[in-house]
């Protein structure tokens, strides 16, 4: 039916896990495929139709100059551009290079680094083009993805929970690992969406869904230091899959300065 919105999935520097989440929505996949016209989704289909597209899902971060140009074209072709996952939303784990020396990184990995074309930074899609909606997660949650797609198909603006992971822990009856076991956990400053998995498995949250709105990372960092962590140990806690999200970046930089005694 021609009234079905067209869907396109684009990949930049990423692991494919977020777009795989769509295929992982086993129960809803065929319904989704019936509700939208999948026009461009190379991972799932050899049929690749040209744009424009109604809904574009963009996975991955911008790490090459070619991709920096390609995202502009994707934006032009897309009515509603939604980023999926931590790479597209915050630069991903590969944004660790943003604190390092990319040339040296290349040397460490490749015998002939001079052949490699890459930018020195890994940046979020929103640093390059206007993004209409960001779906967080490393990886995204396929229930959330289906919910967001449903809302777009129904023509309403998607809304995903903006509360902290703690709320979900408490709803599911998980005992706080920080309070009961002294494990540093990013739950209080991390946006919910994963279902609060890690504390339910006896480990601290490591921030897959990025900073919750108005998060108070500084207070949490100070508390961990007051209870025995060193600033240096805490830097990687904030500096991982969403480490380049502004709030976590600021906190890891602050801790790094403290670790260096600045």
């Amino acid at each position: 039916m021609s009234t079905r919105p067209t869907l396109a999935v684009f990949k930049f520097a990423s692991c494919d896990g977020c777009q795989l989440s769509l295929l992982d929505a086993e129960d809803e996949l065929l319904a989704v495929a019936g509700a939208v016209d999948i026009a461009f989704f190379p991972e799932a289909s050899s049929r690749m139709l040209p744009g424009p597209y109604d809904i574009a899902l963009v996975e991955g971060s911008i790490t090459t100059s070619h991709d920096a140009e390609r995202i502009q074209e994707v934006r032009k072709q897309s009515r509603f551009l939604m980023t999926i996952g931590a790479c597209a939303t915050a630069g991903g784990i590969q944004a660790l290079r943003n604190w390092g020396d990319t040339a040296e990184f290349l040397q460490a990995v490749y015998a002939r680094p001079e052949y490699i074309s890459t930018l020195a930074t890994s940046t979020a899609i929103a640093d390059h083009v206007t993004v209409d909606f960001e779906l967080r997660g490393c990886p995204i949650n396929h229930h959330q993805l289906v919910e967001v797609l449903s809302s777009l198909i129904a023509g309403r603006r998607p809304r995903t929970p903006t509360h902290s992971v703690c709320l979900d822990c408490k709803r599911r009856g998980t005992v706080c690992v920080t309070v009961a076991q002294g494990i540093p956990c990013l739950g209080p400053v991390t946006q919910a969406g994963c279902g609060a998995i890690c504390p339910a498995y006896d480990r601290g949250c490591y921030g897959c869904y990025g900073p919750v709105k108005q998060c108070n990372s500084e207070s949490l960092g100070d508390h961990f230091i007051a209870t025995g962590s060193t600033p240096g140990e805490l830097v990687p806690l904030f500096r991982n899959f969403n480490g380049y999200a502004p709030e976590f970046r600021a906190e890891s930089d602050r801790l790094a300065r403290r670790a260096e005694g600045v």
Binding site: F12, A13, G60, T63, T64, D67, G92, I93, Q94, L96, R97, G100, T102, E104, F105, L106, A108, V109, Y110, I116, T118, S122, P236, N240
Partner: peptide, 17 residues
């Protein structure tokens, strides 16, 4: 596929990670 330099960015991280 753009390079993501995992082997380099693992250096210095705790082995638990």
């Amino acid at each position: 596929e753009p390079p993501r330099l995992f082997e380099a960015l693992l250096r210095g991280r705790a082995l638990e990670e």
